[in-house]
């Protein structure tokens, strides 16, 4: 049963509450949905809504987004227009008004499309832990998780150069639908060859994953259908069955969607 909901006014107070055993509540769009119909032991929540963790800071090409910033805020920020397609593919407006950036990093697949985008952007997290503040690559956090009591306070990344960010999500419905395959990529082409590539996938494993094998195939190669087809075979994916699609289907259409993400058709 829910025994308390704290609304600390600072990151430090929030971290203290977490370290005392409370569970962080971002937008609540995943956690509250489960709590509303679930029995279980006593539970204390610490809401991050008032903890001073919201806000978008853009300095040159350095972007810092507060952990409790909502997806709606990102959607509305013209400076982050490259993320608009990603964010608008997530849930619906009344959910995006609540859902937070940090929350999206930890929702189970096939959700967490923003996490895939941020992984492709090589984001880092500011984490407030028992030992104070530290930086963690998002890639490590989505793989290994955080320590109990750690509080993500900020997401940082370098804004992608113009036209270098790709986001493609296949889902059963056009809007408001979990991912079948999500492809997020930061890609630079120079002289007809891939000069920089960072590729993240959603829907194809229990966590968002970096497609390091595909990156290796693509780097230095011409961006064409034949190369992309090889790239699609370069990673071990472990897709799953869920209400949206089977593992077979996800694996079957991943090459198609990788190609559409990178080549546009």
């Amino acid at each position: 049963m829910l025994t308390s909901v704290q609304t600390p006014g600072s990151p430090e107070a929030a971290r203290a509450a977490l370290q005392a055993g409370a569970v962080p509540l971002g937008g609540g769009t995943s956690l509250m949905a489960r709590l509303n119909d679930r029995a279980g032991g006593d539970l204390r929540l610490v809401s991050l809504r008032r903890a001073g963790l919201s806000g978008i800071d853009v300095q040159g090409d350095t972007v810092a987004i507060g952990a409790a910033t909502t997806l709606a805020d990102i959607e509305d920020d013209a400076r982050l227009s490259y993320l608009s397609g990603c964010v608008r593919s997530i849930a619906s407006p009344p959910v995006r008004s609540l859902a937070t950036v940090a929350g999206n990093l930890f929702v189970p697949q096939p959700y967490g499309d923003l996490a895939a985008a941020l992984l492709a952007l090589d984001a880092e997290l500011d984490v407030l832990g028992a030992d104070g503040a530290r930086r963690e690559p998002l890639e490590r956090v989505v793989t290994d998780g955080l320590r109990a009591g750690d509080l993500v306070t900020r997401v940082r990344f370098a804004a992608p150069a113009e036209d270098t960010f790709r986001f493609h999500k296949a889902s059963r419905r056009r809007l408001n639908s979990g991912s079948i395959v999500t492809v997020a990529a930061r890609i630079t082409i120079e002289d007809g060859l891939v000069a920089d590539i960072r590729l993240a996938l959603g829907g194809l494993a229990r966590r968002v994953m970096r497609a390091a094998g595909a990156e290796r195939v693509l780097l230095g190669a011409p961006l064409n259908a034949e190369v992309v087809a090889r790239a699609a075979e370069a990673d071990v994916i472990e897709p799953f069955d869920d209400a949206y699609a089977s593992a077979w289907y996800r694996a079957r259409v991943y090459p198609v969607h990788l190609r559409r993400a990178l080549l546009g058709a």
Binding site: M1, L2, D37, R38, A39, G40
Partner: peptide
């Protein structure tokens, strides 16, 4: 409702 849900679970 919470108590009923908790009771049902137990």
């Amino acid at each position: 409702e919470e108590a009923a849900r908790e009771g049902a679970a137990r």
